[in-house]
Write a protein that binds this DNA or RNA. Sequence first.
RNA 1: GCCCUGAUAGUUUCUAAUGGUUAAAACAGGCCCUUGGUAAGGGUCAGUUCCCAGUUCGAUUCUGGGUCAGGGCACCA
Length: 638
Amino acid sequence: MLNITLPDGNKLNFEKKVTGFEIAEKISKSLSKSALLISIDGKLKDLNTVIDKDCSVKIFTSKDKEGLETIRHDTAHILAMAVQELFPGTQVTIGPVIEDGFYYDFARKEPFTDEDLNKIENKMREIVERDEQTTREVWPRKKAIDHFKKIGEIYKAEIIKNIPEEEEVSIYFHGKWHDLCRGPHLTSTGKIGKYFKLTKVSGAYWRGDSKNEMLQRVYGTSWSTQKELDDYLEKIEEAEKRDHRKLGKLMNLFHFREESPGAVFWHEKGWALFQKLISYMRYKQEDAGYKEINTPEILDRSLWEKSGHWEKFGANMYTSETPDKKIFAIKPMNCPGCVQVFNQGLKSYRDLPFKMSEFGKVHRYEPSGALHGLLRVRAFTQDDAHIFCTEDQITEECLSVTNLILEIYKDLGFEDVILKYSDRPDLRVGEDGVWDKSEAALLKAIKASKLEYSVNKGEGAFYGPKIEFVLRDAIGRDWQCGTLQVDLNLPGRLGASYVDKDGSKKIPVMLHRALFGSLERFIGILIENYAGKLPFWISPLQTMVIPISEDFNEYAVLIQKKIKNSGITCSVDLKNHNLNYKIREHSNAKVPILLICGKKEVDSNAVTIRKLDSNKQENMSIDEFIKKYSALNKAPSI
RNA sequence: GCCCUGAUAGUUUCUAAUGGUUAAAACAGGCCCUUGGUAAGGGUCAGUUCCCAGUUCGAUUCUGGGUCAGGGCACCA
C-alpha cells in the first residue's frame, strides 16, 4: 500500500507503485492532460518517474514557473536535436533556461545564418509534431565519457568529467536523439507546444571564459500560450521603441561619431538635461553636508603608481606623453585627486566625517565591444564623492549615503531598488580584522535600510567591500547605478591622516560613493524609463510657444520671454508651418507643454495649454500659468 | 578584445539602382506663397555612396585591410 500526500493535505492510496502521470489521472482528467512535471518530496522529477515509496507530491503544469521553465529547457533540447539533424557533425555543449527563454551553444566551423535559423525552427516544429517519447537512463560515468568521446562530442565528455562524484550521470533520449542532462524533462517532444521562436545567433565563449574557443549560441524563447509569446514579442518591440539611442536622435539630445568612439557629443537639449541633473544633485548634496571640489583630469604617472591604479587599472587607462617625454594619465577615477585635497592642511578628528563631492569626468579605455550608447561609454561624468571618517562612523555614513541615494532615485521616478552586496575578494589588501569590521559595518547599514539585497561573494573591490544599487525601470529591466565602497587602503597609500583626540596621527577610512554612477548612463536609463517623456521638472525643454499664424508671432515671443524669466525653459516656433504640423512635431520631440496662441489668446492675455499625450486644452492667463508651473518646476523632495 | 551582420543625402530605404555621362525616392531642412488644433497644398534650393590600398581603360558596386555601428560573448559605472 502506497500513501501519496497531495499539496492540500489529502492522501491518495495506490497498490504498490505508480507514476506521476497516473497520480494526475486519478486527481482529474484535465490535470492528466496538462500535467508536465512532478515534485517528489520537494524534488522536481519527470512525470513518468516510478514512485514506490510513501511521499508527498505536487504536480506542475505550464501555469507554474517550474512548468514553464521545463518547457523552455525542452525547447532547448529540441533545438539541439534539430541542429544535429540538419547539420551533422555539429557538437552540442550546454543549453540552459534563461529569463524569458533559453539558448544552446554549439561548436561548428561554419557560422549559422539567419536562413539557417529559419530552417532550424521549421525542423523543431517537425520534431514537436513527431511527438517523440522521452526516456531517462542513468549511465556509469566511464561509459558516458567513452560514449560521448566516441561520437565526437568532446565538450559533453568534458562536462561529465566535471559532474561531482555523488551525482548521477543521466542521459535523456527523445526518440533516438540523446543528450546528457540533469533533467527533469517533459514526457514527449509534443508537450512543449508550438509557442516558441528562435530569436538570434551570436558568439559565446566555451565556459564563459574569453581565453577559450568561441562557440555559436542560438537564442530562443518559448511560452505556454500564443498570448504569452505575443506579449513577450511586444515587450521586446516596446523596449526597442524606448531605445535611448533612437530617442536621443529623435529628441536631438546627443550623438556619437567615429573620431571618438564611446564619447558623447552633447547637443543643446541633451546638455540642458545633463546640467539640470547636476544642479539638482548639487542642491541635494549641499543639503547632505557635502563640499563640492574639482580636481585635474590629467595627473602625473607617479600618483597612479602610488595609488595602485597603474598596476591594477592600467589596462583601462588613457595615458599621454608631453613633448618633453613626461607621462601623464587621464584620470579613470577621481579618488586619488580627492585625497590630495583632503591632504591639504592638518585635519582633526573634529573635521570628520569630511565629505567632498566632485562631478568628475573620467576616461576609461573600455573594450570596443562593450560600448553601448550612453549606457557604456569611455568618457563619463561621475557624481562622485569621498567621505573621510573614522571606523566608528562607517555604519552611520553608509546609512546616510543609502538614504540619499533612495531619495534621489525616488525623485526621478525609481522606487524599485535592490542592493547587491559584495564582500572580500581573494586578491585584496588589508588585514582580515579590518575587513571583518568594514564588512560588518556595511552589512549593518544595508540591514538598517530594510532593502532587499543579494550577496556577490568575493566581488568586492581590492580595498574594501561594496554595495551596488540596482534600480528597476518602467518595463521591468534592471540597471546598476550607484555604488558605495568602504576603503581602508587608499588613504594610507596616499598619505592621508588626521589628528585624533589623543594627539596621535591616524589614517582615516574613505568611503567612495556615486549616486547615479555615471551621468551619461543615468540619462540613458531615464530616457528609456520614461520613453523620452521626462517629467516636467527635469525636461530639457519644458514649454514651446506656437502661434497659430504669423500674425501672432509678436505675442508668442512676448509670452516666451515672460516664461523664460520665470525660470521655466521655453522656446517659440515661428517657422512657416501650420498649427497641426507644429503640434505634431513638438509632441514627437516630447516637449511636455505646448502653448498655443491666436487671436482669442491675445485678446484675453492668455495661453492655451496642451500637455504631451493629451488632446485636451486648457486656457489660462499667463500669470496663472507661470504661478502654477513654477510650483511644479522642482524635484518632488525639494 | 572575440563571433556574426552591416555601412548610399540630415533621417529612412528587404521603397532604390548600377563595373560606365547629371546615383534614386520619401520624409526632414532653407527661402517664397499659403496657414485655426497631432504631418493641408504649391514653387524653388542643396549630396565628396565610411577610409586606405588593389584589380580595371573606368570601382559606390569586385578583392584585401582598416574604422565605426548593431546583436551577443567577455569586461564593466
